[in-house]
Design a protein around this nucleic acid. Structure first.
Lengths: 122, 122
DNA sequence: ATAATATAACACCCAATGGTTTCGTGTCAA
DNA sequence: TTGACACGAAACCATTGGGTGTTATATTAT
């Protein structure tokens, strides 16, 4: 690891529950690696690796303060995720309205009904 | 019964570029496995595995039609991702002021509280 | 200076991932 | 019925990821 090229993008970075929890922690304030480690049942080295991955994805940034390294959130990088999501938003709003229609007419099976119901081909 | 013990959640499902591409394809219309495979430089089995993962994450659903299995997008599951994202949204434009505010008033322990707490722009 | 602390840098292990191929089964069409 | 097609399941393999521990280095405190 420790490659110069970035192997991790935002999508991979947030795929891990531990890393998502770290991000949540960092919304509070800057934290050192050891400090963050105290919240998790794993070694400091493991947490440092997670932080390195988050750092590659530009979701956090670390600055050296004395002998500690303080990490802080860099939430702007989540913009990429938001934009990716917005592409699908139109589709699932559409789906939800259809779902509502289905539920109104037949309200037993819910989500599973839809897959045999609406099939608009382009 | 909301199923149980799913190996793959939404976050892991979208971590893979191939799977994201599959989702994009499925926004157009239902597609069979072989049809989807034609878009990728990998075997049909590999694509089927990706589809299985997407299915576990409830991002797609498949129905058998004759000897084909047609997959369709199930974008409602992206709602979970959207909600996760919305938690951080409040931080990435005015993160400095909020961060300062949080540090001054309260320390940790309130991770879950914060999402209902500070949603006002300063 | 010395000791204690915090992080970095490695080497190593195990499990999971992502791909392959092969084989079997059910389905559609001559 | 026969054969091509679409899929599923399983075995298999290479690579990577996340975990461990150990050691090294730099900073702070005494």
């Amino acid at each position: 690891m420790s490659s110069s090229a970035e192997k991790y993008d935002v999508f991979q970075a947030i795929a891990d529950p531990t890393r998502r929890e770290v991000l949540k922690l960092l919304t509070q304030k800057e934290l050192s690696i050891s400090n963050i480690t105290s919240y998790f049942p794993m070694s400091r080295t493991a947490v440092a690796k997670h932080l390195h991955i988050l750092s590659e994805a530009k979701l956090v940034s670390g600055r050296k303060v004395g002998r500690e390294k303080l990490y802080r959130l860099q939430p702007e990088s989540l913009e990429e995720l938001k934009q990716w999501l917005s592409f699908f938003e139109q589709f699932w709003n559409n789906k939800l309205s259809i779902l509502k229609h289905v539920v109104e007419n037949d309200e037993q099976a819910g989500l599973q009904v839809i897959e045999t119901e609406c099939d608009e081909q382009k």
